[in-house]
C-alpha cells in the first residue's frame, strides 16, 4: 500500500508548491505516494489519516498552531518545506514586532478582523518536531526528491553542515566581497551549489544558517570589509530573522560572556 501524503501551507506565497508543480520528476516522485491533499491544487478536505505531511509556510496565527498540532498527532513524518517553514523566511521579517502595531499600520481599522489570532512569525520547528527540512527559497526539487526517498525508507538525512563558500569556489565564482559587495555565503547553509552567486547575485542565506557557521567571525569579517554589524544583520534577517543565534545581539552577548570569563 502506498503511504498517504498531504501538502499544506501556512503563511507563505505558495512558491515552493509552484516549484513542485514545475518539475515532472518531482511529480513522478510524488506518485509513489497516495496524494491525499494538496492545498495548492485540490479543493477537497484533508483526509483523517496520512503518513507524510509536507508543510510550507511560517506559523503566524493561532489557527496555524492548532493545525500543526493536529498534523503532528496524525503524521508519522513531518517535512518542513521551504524557507518560510524552515527558518520563518520572509514572514519572519515581521518578528521584530510588535505584531499588533504592524497589523494596525497595514490594515488600519480592519486590523482586529484581519489580525484575529495573529502571532509572532516562527518556523514550524518552534511548535512541533520536524523530521526533515527542505530549506531554500524556493526549494531545490532534487533535494525534495532525495529527502522524500529517505523519508519513505526511514533513513536519516544528514544535511551538510558547512557554510557555502566551499561550494561557491567549486562553482568557480569570484567572491562578491572582493568587489565590495556583501554576501552571506560564509554563514549560509550549503547544498545549493551556490546557485545565486553563479547567476550573479550575492547569497541571502535563504537556506538558513549553516550548522558549522561561525557567526562571530563572519560579523568581524563583514565589519573589516565596510559592512557594519547593523547592515550585516539586516541582510541576515531577510530570511533568518527568527534565528536568534545569528543576530548581533547574540554575538555581543557571547563576547560579553567571554569578557566576564577572561
Amino acid at each position: 500500500m502506498r503511504p498517504t501524503a498531504v501538502i499544506l501551507s501556512l503563511a507563505s506565497d505558495y512558491g515552493c508548491q509552484v516549484q513542485i508543480s514545475n518539475f515532472p520528476e518531482i511529480l513522478e516522485m510524488l506518485s509513489t505516494f497516495d496524494l491525499g491533499y494538496w492545498q495548492f491544487v485540490s479543493s477537497g478536505d484533508m483526509p483523517d489519516a496520512y503518513e507524510v505531511a509536507l508543510i510550507e509556510g511560517a506559523v503566524t496565527t493561532d489557527e496555524h498552531v492548532e493545525l500543526l498540532e493536529k498534523v503532528r498527532a496524525t503524521a508519522s513524518c513531518v517535512i518542513a518545506l521551504g524557507a518560510c517553514a524552515a527558518t520563518g523566511g520572509i514572514p519572519g521579517l515581521a518578528i521584530a514586532g510588535p505584531v499588533r502595531g504592524q497589523l494596525k499600520e497595514v490594515y488600519g481599522s480592519g486590523e482586529k478582523k484581519v489580525g484575529a489570532g495573529a502571532r509572532k512569525p516562527a518556523p514550524i520547528s518552534d511548535y512541533i518536531t520536524v523530521d526533515f527540512t527542505i530549506p531554500g527559497c524556493p526549494i531545490d526539487p532534487a533535494e525534495l526528491s532525495r529527502v522524500l526517498q529517505r523519508a519513505i525508507r526511514a533513513l536519516v538525512d544528514t544535511p551538510q553542515r558547512q557554510s557555502m563558500c566551499g561550494e561557491c569556489k567549486i562553482a568557480e565564482n569570484m567572491c562578491f566581497w572582493l568587489a565590495g559587495t556583501p554576501c552571506l555565503g560564509m554563514i549560509a547553509r550549503s547544498g545549493c551549489n551556490a546557485t545565486c552567486v553563479s547567476r550573479g547575485r550575492p547569497c541571502t542565506a535563504c537556506r538558513g544558517i549553516a550548522q558549522d557557521a561561525n557567526i562571530e567571525s563572519a560579523y568581524a569579517f563583514a565589519a573589516q570589509n565596510k559592512c557594519d554589524a547593523d547592515q550585516f544583520e539586516s541582510l541576515i534577517k531577510i530570511y533568518n530573522a527568527a534565528n536568534e543565534q545569528a543576530t548581533q545581539k547574540a554575538v555581543t552577548s557571547k563576547k560579553t560572556a567571554q569578557e566576564v570569563v577572561s
Binding site: Q162, M164, C165, S217
Partner: peptide, 13 residues
C-alpha cells in the same frame, strides 16, 4: 583556527 568560517573554501581550491 578559532575564526575559521568552516566553509571549506581552502580545501576546495
Amino acid at each position: 583556527g578559532d575564526p575559521c568560517l568552516s566553509c571549506g573554501a581552502c580545501s576546495a581550491v
